[in-house]
Design a protein around this nucleic acid. Structure first.
Lengths: 355, 355
DNA sequence: CTGTTAGCGCGTTCAC
DNA sequence: GTGAACGCGCTAACAG
């Protein structure tokens, strides 16, 4: 032959029908052999079917199964920003746990836009996911909250299960995160180190997570007789650049007698440390810094960053577990939430005040 | 009423049939109004259908659509480790681009295990994804390569499209990454700064990406008359801990006259810097360090890390574009790959040799 | 342009 | 235990 081989033609995937024919059994038997609930099929047939399936390279069509069964094996995950270490760690947890249950996870990004989030929820409902995990951040006074609640309520009424990671005002299962308690503990620990005058680099005022952390921090200070004055608070976005920018503005305006800067999450803290350095100061020595989340990289920055550990991967796992749990066990959900409690990790970025 | 409200009963999701009935039109008309390709439906009917759909909170069942159409709107993405900044950035790119095309992305983790990867590919085929993006790392001499190729070939013959991010030995569309060229450029740039004696912190010997980067680096050195002796190479895993561990071992064994440590990716470099510090030395001053990838956090470590920029998000986008492209344009694929070219970014971790 | 009908691939009753 | 037949929600001819 002078011409090349005939190009391998595009074929349709093997269907269950093909397998049944190949094995010389009925569709029903083939189905039962490959998935069937109660294994009430002759061993010989069963083997023939399995062999045929292997020979044909058969893979069950998940969509078709979903349609026939009326249930999918999908879990939908919504995060604010996949590239953010906070969310990517959490996602890793969800994906890992999903794999154990042979569930498939689909992912989307809200980009911190609640209108976009609402739209995404609507779109993802088309997949008829078994569960939907909303890990994107909650806004206090979100104008889309009602619409989101309606959408999720409808979703749950049609058999789905929605779970929020971290508190929301919406009436759905929630994996509470110890943002408040963590902030409290951090404040107390820092006070114990001798720090007295703080400034906070906060996220947007309406961001629930930011709100809780700062509130907890203020409570913690109050509990030991200190305080966080309202003017000691710089707002910006909840990102690395937000942290950098807030710190830069703070330095330009003058940090006054501030001893320690509390950035509401680690990526902000890292940005803040860079801003401090760019201003010719040394983080830790000239100005202490603390973060929140304890993402992996804070061990590798200089000085190592004091933070509040959030077991992100475990949180992702727990969120899925909580979603999958049988109805009534709200209690057990609370119980297992001890797994996701926080812990203050003191490091070199808060060596204690110079004096 | 003394008893509470009747509990909202679990209902089945609204179906297209429901919408049609509500709007008083046929199934086909409803279908056409909501999805139909050419909009050849009476405006009045159309509006009635849309209203009915809205009233009923109808969302098309994607699984059913997939079954009926014979095509899904899913793209499957395989990465080694979601929590790794390299992969999470890449994933963000894929998800972003997918959203533009109204595609849904499902994600799974190979955990750098090729057997697991093979299994995952098989499982994901069940979704009948339109495209499959394999971004997990390739192993040279992978014993599962043949099986993977068979699986992917079967997948493509049934209408799917497989795309590899970074070169593999397998005959599928590939988005080439400039690992070799990047290594070369880095070597030349460092040599120009005055560095002459290097040690590399490499990943596993069989890891293709690591191999290419180190080979490129050696080539670059050779091109300017320098070299990387074979014994100047410490193996470990391709992770932060791998970098830390390799550096620790290197320090224990004695770094000799090494001026600069080239870690084959940024997370390794960050681990290495921590190890250097833990040994009482100062990265940059006592020992220069360079990484690869230019992940976001390298701007925030101290000293800022010299690296080779890989536009990870864009790479993710391009991978999807490449997968979605019409048949014959292998050429244009190459062309667009200029978008994903690398660039050396010199920073403080390589200030130039002391002498 | 509209409605009827036949599938898509699979699970599952129901008789045999 | 097995197979035939129906249904899942939807699209795509096919006639009107």
């Amino acid at each position: 032959m002078i011409e090349g081989d005939a190009p391998t033609r595009r074929t349709a995937p093997a269907t269950l029908h093909d397998v049944a024919r190949e094995a010389g059994v009925s569709l029903a038997t083939a189905s039962r052999s490959l998935n069937g609930s109660a294994r009430k099929v002759n061993e010989e047939y069963r083997e023939r079917v399995l062999a045929a399936a292997a020979k044909l390279g058969y893979t069950p069509n998940l969509s078709a199964q979903a349609v026939a069964r009326g249930t999918s094996t999908t879990v939908a995950l919504l995060v604010a920003d996949i590239a953010d270490p906070y969310f990517s760690s959490l996602a890793a947890g969800v994906v890992g746990a999903a794999g154990d249950d042979r569930l498939i996870v689909t992912m989307a990004e809200t980009k911190r836009d609640s209108a976009r989030e609402l739209e995404l929820v609507r779109a993802m409902r088309g997949q008829r996911p078994r569960v939907m995990i909303l890990a994107g951040s909650r806004d206090i006074g979100d104008p889309n909250a009602a619409a989101l609640e309606a959408e999720l309520t409808a979703y749950e009424q049609t058999g789905g299960r929605a779970v929020f990671v971290s508190e929301s005002d919406l009436p759905f299962r929630t994996l509470p995160l110890a943002n408040r308690a963590g902030g409290r503990d951090l404040a107390v620990a820092l006070h114990e180190l001798g720090y007295r005058r703080f400034t906070a680099l906060a996220g947007p005022e309406t961001l629930r997570t930011a709100h809780d952390r700062i509130a907890g921090f203020a409570e913690g200070l109050a509990s030991v007789g200190a305080q966080l004055p309202a003017d000691r608070l710089v707002r910006s976005s909840f990102t690395r650049d937000g942290g950098y920018d807030a710190m830069r503005r703070l330095l330009e305006a003058g940090i006054g007698d501030t001893q320690l800067v509390f950035a509401l999450n680690d990526v902000m803290a890292m940005g803040a440390m860079s801003a401090i350095r760019d201003a010719g100061l040394e983080p830790g020595r000239d100005l202490a810094v603390a973060g929140f989340d304890d993402i992996p990289t804070v061990r590798d920055v200089t000085p190592r960053l004091t933070s509040v550990r959030m077991p992100l991967e475990r949180i992702g796992e727990q969120a899925l577990r909580l979603a999958l749990e049988d109805g009534a066990d709200a209690a057990s959900a609370r119980a297992s939430s001890t797994d996701v409690s926080t812990e203050v990790v003191l490091r070199e970025s808060t060596p204690g005040p110079a004096a």
